[in-house]
């Protein structure tokens, strides 16, 4: 049924209306490249809905459905159940949702799908706020970051999605970043080979929302990895595996100075953030050592 007016790049249209400097395109292209054409997508409203298309115009070459903001995991679970009933054990069902659609409003349906271990791959690209609708804070917005609903900086820490996922004993979960594409691809490949509910948490900085020059997206994401703001890890068969130890764990000075959302942060807040990052990392190290 799909007719082509343009040649796709992989499974994705070459011209997508995502903002300049947004790397969600790269996530989509890499994920679909690995998952293959026998894949069905579930996308909620949000930045990723640029890939659902508009009117009759499509942006991806695989079938899919745009659900509501909070039910991507449930719709995916339904699709997986439908395929399973029909003896289709090959088609991959992939949700790609933002942090708001995942850790805020979508946490219930994701929790249900994880608990039932529905055969889906759930990908959360995390830009740490509701970027599509004007940079409103989400429960993934980090401590001290300013958004349009946390203008004085967010007073509390973000939810720890990976730990929430791990508490559901899913067969595979991993965090990844657009700053490390080989690692991201490796984790998507691994997820593809595993049955059950798999979750990938991928950092995807937002130049508009975070307030940095659009050319710096990868650089900012790399800095987040280096100071432990974004921890690359895997959870497989109940075991935690951490990536390379952050070289400047807890040193947020440079990271904060790169972004306008941390403009008004006081020294005290910086120390609190720093302490939190170190404590979290040390806790994860203990888990990894188990």
């Amino acid at each position: 049924m799909l007719t082509y007016k343009t040649q796709p790049k992989g499974a994705v249209s070459p011209g997508i209306n995502t903002c300049q400097g947004c790397m969600i395109d790269v996530i989509f292209r890499n994920v679909l490249d690995i998952m293959g054409e026998d894949t069905v997508l579930v996308i909620p409203p949000g930045c990723s809905a640029q890939f659902s298309g508009c009117g009759p115009e499509a942006s991806v070459t695989v079938p899919g459905i745009q659900g509501n903001l909070e039910n991507s995991a449930a719709i995916a679970a339904g699709i997986a159940a439908g395929f399973k009933y029909q003896g289709n054990d090959h088609t991959q069902v992939v949700s790609i949702a933002g942090d708001g659609a995942t850790v805020d409003i979508g946490i219930q349906s994701l929790s249900g799908a994880m608990e039932r271990n529905d055969n889906i791959l759930y990908i959360c690209y995390d830009n740490e706020a509701y970027m599509n609708t004007g940079i409103q804070g989400s429960s993934s917005t980090p401590l001290a970051a300013s958004t349009t609903t946390t203008p004085a900086g967010k007073p509390v820490n973000s939810k720890d999605l990976m730990q929430i996922v791990m508490a559901h004993h899913v067969p595979y979960a991993a965090s990844a970043s657009i700053a490390n594409l080989p690692d991201l691809r490796k984790k998507v490949k691994k997820a593809k080979e595993i049955k059950g509910c798999r979750v990938l948490h991928i950092m995807s900085p937002c130049p508009t929302g975070w307030g940095y020059k659009m050319s710096k997206t990868v650089e900012v994401a790399r800095e987040a990895i280096q100071n432990g703001s974004w921890v690359l890890m895997e959870y497989e068969d109940g075991r935690v595996k951490l990536g390379k130890k952050p070289s400047q764990l807890g040193d947020v000075e440079k990271y904060f100075s790169m972004q306008k959302r941390f403009k008004g942060v006081t020294q005290e807040e910086k120390e609190e953030v720093s302490r939190h990052l170190i404590e979290r990392y040390e806790y994860l190290e203990k888990l990894a050592a188990l």
């Binding site: 049924m1 007719t3 343009t6 249209s13 011209g15 115009e57 942006s59 003896g87 289709n88």
Partner: peptide, 27 residues
């Protein structure tokens, strides 16, 4: 029933009711 055995009512050109995108374009 296997998915490939399921009948579909898909003639070459047909009308689709409701919202869907089906023409791959680029901005």
């Amino acid at each position: 029933e296997k998915q490939q055995d399921m009948p579909t009512s898909t003639p070459a050109k047909r009308r689709v009711l409701g919202p869907c995108s089906h023409i791959l374009v680029a901005a």
